[in-house]
Design a protein around this nucleic acid. Structure first.
Lengths: 89, 89
DNA sequence: TTTTCATATTCGTATATTCGAATGTATTTA
DNA sequence: TAAATACATTCGAATATACGAATATGAAAA
């Protein structure tokens, strides 16, 4: 996907360079999840999860759909994420 | 390669999350280079290049061989690096 | 409308990262 | 040995990141 230069690619790595964000992204590979689902899967406070989700959204890695009072987050480029993580198997 | 968990993988991303370090790594994909070669390729001060190389070495991404008064740096896992960057083409 | 539930934002503080300038350390050459 | 070359390390200041606590928002249920 259109990320040719160093700054874009290193910025992308920076977003994935936090264990919590990496966990979130990995969980989202299995499908949409709302914030409380993610919070149950990952040991972290609600505000912290929200903060990381916000950064992921800012960097165009996730988006969400409102479902009632919940927000269901999903990966915007699941194949990119999958391809990258595949390298570490 | 042997990087199972979130912490290891996110730490690896963190090392690549700086434009200068990513540039260094990309240049080293073309083969060994000594510090002054790298400095010529990348617009940065000598001490700064050294600092980034030191971090790359600490994280087991590069190593070097002494050649006279120069140090020739090279990638320890060039295929891993190549495979990761390939994803962004 | 009030309350409740799900999530977001703000704020303060602690910690980490980055860089340049200066200095240190080998190694080689004179 | 002394000077030069190549690179590393240290230090301090600026900036960035991370987190929890508290508070805010917004949708739905009562």
């Amino acid at each position: 996907m259109g990320m040719r230069n160093y700054k874009n690619i290193s910025a992308f790595f920076k977003v994935l360079s936090h264990p919590t964000r990496l966990m979130i992204v990995k969980e989202l590979l299995n499908g949409k999840k709302c914030v409380s689902d993610i919070r149950d899967l990952i040991k972290a406070r609600q505000s912290n999860i929200s903060q990381h989700l916000s950064l992921l959204k800012l960097n165009n890695i996730v988006a969400y759909k409102q479902k009632g009072k919940m927000k269901c987050y999903f990966l915007k480029k699941p194949r990119l994420i999958r391809d990258i993580l595949k390298v570490f198997l």
